[in-house]
Amino acid sequence: MPPSPRSELFAGIKAELPIALGVIPFGMIYGVLAVAAGLPPLLAQAMSAIVFAGSAQFIGVQLFAAATPAGIIWLTTFIVNLRHLLYSASLAPYLRALPPRWKWLLAYLLTDEAYVTAILHYNDPRAVSPHKHWFFLGAGLALWGFWQASTAVGIFLGAQVPSSWALDFTLALTFIGLVVPALTSWPPIAAAVTAGVVALLTPDLPYKSGLMLAAIAGIAAGLLTERRP
């Protein structure tokens, strides 16, 4: 049976379930930090819905706590989220034929985790379907739900989540679980290792701008190692 919009939607939701295990603790910690930073609970929750970008929210609440001027907070948000520019470019060819309302909606749901699951699905030669945007929608909505719910739990629990549990580490582990199985040939391995090493070599650039530099170096390494006889 060929995939229907409905089956793609549910496949997208299902694909996010294991990732939720890594994202939920992260959302909870965000909620805890936001309240500790003095953010009113309603605004802490609103930030998860309006910004919907974990690392920018983490850094944002720390800057709120330090009474940082809004201009600096916005600049930081811009630089921290600049990696989404690469996601946006990477998905653009697949979303081209969609009506504008789909593009506006899917752009709102374009987080790290939704991006990776969606792009893996788009690139999967075994999954032939004209409805892959429904998969993306399912993945994005599932993640959105987990993020809002875990933020609420974090706000509610507050400091009852001990920091010694190091629950923030689950997100890095989630990313490992997503990236390693995709390293099936030398070019993506070169891209991953180069980006990682460059990220380690550029510690002192402000506002995590080393991340973009590292990503671009990794992409270059991937291209350079392609097509070797």
């Binding site: 792009i119 891209a191 290792v193 380690l200 992409i219 991937g222």
Partner: peptide, 16 residues
Amino acid sequence: GLKYVPPAVLSAIIFP
């Protein structure tokens, strides 16, 4: 080049 966005960006987050 865009094919390498996922491994490059995620590794740049993971390594540090």
